[in-house]
Amino acid sequence: MDMQTTVAEASRHFAPRPGYLAACTLGLPTHETIAAQQADLRAWQLGDVSPVAYGEVVEEARAAFARIARVDVGRVAIGSQTSSQVAVVAASVPDGAEVLCVTGDFSSVVFPFLAQAHRGVRVRHVPADELAAAVSADTWLVAWSRVQSATGAVSDDDAILSAARAHGALTFCDLTQAAGVLPVDASRYDLTVTHSYKWLCSPRGAAFLTVAPEVHDRLVPVQAGWYAGDDVWESCYGPDMNLAADARAFDVSPAWPAWVGALPALRLFSSLDPADTWRHATGLGDALCARLDREPQGQAVVTWADPDGADLRVLGRAGLTVSGRAGRVRVAFHLWNTADDVDRVVAALRP
């Protein structure tokens, strides 16, 4: 695919109904994803599938994500869910160490660390805009989301990374609400996690963990199985465990049909300039803010307080698909959205 696919060209790969404004909840499949999954179901029905062929699909998807995340493919581990990959990192936190998190961050970024309390692991929560200042000499790991799920706010990663380096803390960033719409560079962090079913428009069940080489040996491969072996097909039976030397040591056996659908979507997003996608999405978001007499947010997800859910219900009755989280409305703009969607939201809220 042309490495300079434009937003307009990319939008033609989708066929949403008008008013779908919920990429932050669930991305939409491309035409190619639907075709690939339909073909896979038919091949499975006929007995024309094989684990080896599925493995080739997974490796191509891994390489496509590496291009999106701007890292060497050897830093990318594959998995099925964000929480299970965060759990690998959580299980590696030393007994009694401190993990610094954002107050109100998505639970999959936080709960795995809370589950380590029996070992004395301490989780400290601070507001997102205070995260950098809160890093201390006691902090072993800083864990946060590049884009906050509830508010759509983009973190000040320069300040967070600088503070973590100054105190010798590891950095772990969730890119799930960023990759696919916001330019990301996973090489900036020690660790990242990304589920691809939101802005990367893949089926649920295709997720990624990136691991910097210098922290590889500080992680415990608690989910090690046959797919984490140095030679996958020589790792099907014990007693020896010869793990891969790179991030594949943290692989989880793939849910094959999900990866068949993920590959076309990841190909598409690896061909886009994410800066163009971000300009498109935030441009629509700021246009909505202007029409609603609100300050521009510079976000792909426009949010405002809606404690009783009144606005959420109004938008739903107008046939718009938006979401509500933590007492806020979320209106998300992605490749398939246009100025017409802005008009629809305004017409519903200000008839």
Rank of each mutant, 00 (worst) to 15 (best):
E9R: 03
L41C: 05
V322R: 06
F14D: 07
S84A: 10
A64I: 03
D185S: 06
W304T: 11
L292H: 11
G205V: 03
R350H: 13
W304K: 09
M241C: 07
A43G: 05
A97F: 00
A258L: 04
A23K: 09
A134C: 01
W226V: 06
A133F: 02
T6Q: 00
S235G: 11
V260P: 03
E9F: 05
V322I: 15
P112T: 04
T30V: 13
A15P: 01
A224L: 08
D293V: 09
A137E: 12
R67H: 03
V109Q: 04
V181S: 06
S270K: 13
S11P: 04
A137V: 03
I160N: 05
P183E: 10
A169W: 13
S108F: 11
Q116N: 00
A132N: 00
L243C: 10
T303Y: 07
M1R: 03
A66W: 02
L28R: 15
E234C: 14
D40F: 15
D286H: 12
Q177C: 08
V126I: 01
F333Y: 12
T103Q: 06
C201R: 10
A61S: 13
A207F: 05
V57G: 02
R313I: 05
L182E: 07
G27N: 11
S107G: 01
V181N: 01
V89H: 01
T321R: 14
L21T: 09
D48R: 15
A245R: 15
V73D: 08
V193I: 09
A53Y: 00
A332N: 14
A163N: 09
A287I: 06
G285Y: 12
R119F: 07
L41R: 15
R204W: 10
D156Q: 05
